[in-house]
Amino acid sequence: MASKNLDLRRFPGFLPLTYLCLFLLYAPLIVVMIYSFNDSNSITRWGGMSLRWYHEVFYGVEAPKFRTATFNSVTIALLAATSATIIATMAATAMLRAGKFRGKSASFALINLPLMVPEIVTAVATLIFFSAIGFKAGYLTIVLAHVVFCIPFAYLPIAARMQGIEDTFEQAAQDLYATRFQTFRLILLPLMTPGILSGFLLAFIISLDDFIITNFVKGAGVETLPTAIYGAVRQGIKPNIMAISTLLLSVSVVFVTLSYFVGRMGDKKQ
């Protein structure tokens, strides 16, 4: 019986294609990681293992530039992700737990709008907007632009989590004399914590990684890590770029793993 089921699920060739897929996805990254340890000035010849490029990243000529860029990226991401998470939590409560209200279907379209507009269009539109109202391009414009596209990304795990929570808990709370604010604070919010954390982490990474929109709205004075890297790459791929890439790569992986386990944490509780 079990083998029959296995048969129906198996298709010849699917497994090799999956492995090919994984290979295609990881090969470039692994290669970059390996070459970031390349002890050679040329990026094409392998010269042995070395940490010199990592050293160069932290202490070399361009280090201050990258350090500032990293600082900007992280702080912008923190601000944008926090704002987006708060807004998304409120929005999810409205969409999933507040019955009917005027503009509800329009709201759904609105929340998803940043995902549907191509990034380059958003970038151009935002640049034009700030230019038209005379708002100087810089740190603040980046944060504002980031909050916009972080909202749907924070919204997704939050809404998914909220939908999975039966509203009998909130009914029971009200049955036991809790006001709606108490119900939200004592029952819904704690149960949603994994989703909210997941949403925050997602928004954080999205903001950290953004290039196109940031590049358009940043003006001349500010660099974030992606824009700094891009600027450097324009002049040719140098080994220190690969070191930075590897570092950034590792940070992303750590964050994703964290987000995954945070999400799983919530499942165990239920």
């Binding site: 009998t168 808990f169 009914q171 029971a172 049955d175 029952i187």
Partner: peptide, 11 residues
Amino acid sequence: TVFQQYALFPH
């Protein structure tokens, strides 16, 4: 109310 699926607060 005693709810059909109990609705005990899981946390």
